[in-house]
């Protein structure tokens, strides 16, 4: 963001941030990096257990329902919708950050509102999916689905599914709460008064990270 960025600038000579971002934004990046390791550890643990199992349930057999479609077999459709919702809410978040650069209070509020709507829509989808799976008999410690090779599956599959999507859902929930707090501040005029909308950028980073994690969860649980 520095207008005087040149190749020869001495970034480590002191007097300014060697990362050319504010303290808060840098710390948000470090927090997200550590959170990436948390999710990475969970997903790699899942991969390890899956590699060590002779067989594993077929995701296309497990995740094939769609609300209001009865017993129609529609693998991947619902989770694609969830992915679309989350990508879309990421876009509205970038637009909110962009409006913040323009110091356009009304536009920031509008796009943040859509981001919150997207987040809540995603959480509702997840609530439906969890409820549906619960009624099919799946939960922590219970797995009604059989392996691809027809043998009885262990509960590893459901344990990892509910733990990892649950942990991600918890992140989405706190993201929605943060967005609501920031939206309240935008409406109150806090950032207009402060002269910049950097807080929107910081929660924006968090929100995109949640989308990023979902990209990996989507691949690991539904595609592979």
């Amino acid at each position: 963001m520095d207008t005087a960025v040149t190749a020869k600038k001495k970034w480590w000579a002191g007097g300014y941030s060697p990362f050319n971002v504010s303290y808060g934004k840098l710390m948000m990046w470090y927090f997200l990096m550590s959170d990436a390791f948390t999710f990475g550890a969970l997903l790699i643990a899942y991969g390890t257990i899956r590699f060590s199992s002779p067989s594993w349930p077929d995701p296309n057999e497990v995740f094939k329902s769609f609300p209001g479609m009865g017993h129609a077999e529609l693998p991947l459709m619902f989770v694609s919708l969830m992915t679309f919702i989350l990508i879309m809410s990421s876009v509205t978040m970038v637009l909110a950050v962009h409006a913040g650069h323009m110091r356009d209070k009304k536009a920031v509020a509008k796009w943040l509102m859509w981001t919150i709507v997207g987040g809540i829509a995603f959480l509702s989808c997840q609530a439906w999916e969890w409820t549906h799976l619960y009624h099919e008999g799946a939960w922590w410690g219970r797995n009604p689905f059989i392996n691809v090779d027809g043998t009885q599956a262990s509960t590893n599959f459901t344990n990892f599914f509910f733990t990892i999507t649950g942990f991600h859902g918890l992140h989405v929930t706190s993201g929605v709460v943060l967005n609501i707090v920031i939206l309240a501040n935008v409406l109150k005029g806090t950032y207009e008064h402060r002269g910049h909308y950097e807080m929107v950028e910081k929660v924006g980073l968090y929100w995109h990270f949640v989308d990023l994690v979902w990209v990996f969860v989507f691949t690991c649980f539904y595609l592979l």
Partner: peptide, 8 residues
């Protein structure tokens, strides 16, 4: 850190 907010 004033230089980080001059971009608007």
């Amino acid at each position: 850190m004033e230089h980080t907010h001059t971009a608007a």
